[in-house]
């Protein structure tokens, strides 16, 4: 049974009911403009507090820096 997830390539402990916001807090990701994908699926920003992460998931958090 998987009790870990991968966040940007780092293995992290997983807990039942863990949300995207929990994962961001765990990683201390406070940058205000992020794109989050769980196993390749985009999570809209409004769902960070409600979207749960399944055990063993691959979570990708992209930091968007301004500049064009």
């Amino acid at each position: 049974m998987d009790t870990q997830i991968t966040i940007n390539g780092h293995l992290k402990p997983w807990t039942e009911g863990m949300t995207v916001q929990d994962a961001l807090n765990l990683m201390n990701y406070t940058f205000r403009m992020l794109v989050v994908k769980i196993n390749g699926e985009l999570v809209p920003r409004k769902d960070y507090a409600s979207a749960t992460i399944p055990a063993g998931a691959d979570v990708m958090v992209i930091h968007l820096i301004s500049g064009g």
């Binding site: 205000r32 794109v35 920003r45 992209i62 820096i65």
Partner: peptide, 26 residues
Amino acid sequence: DTANAKAMLIECCTRHFPDLEIICAS
């Protein structure tokens, strides 16, 4: 240019064209 616009585009394209390759940069 702005991070807001970058996020908007990524979310919009992902929603409408889930298989589209998107290349992003700063």
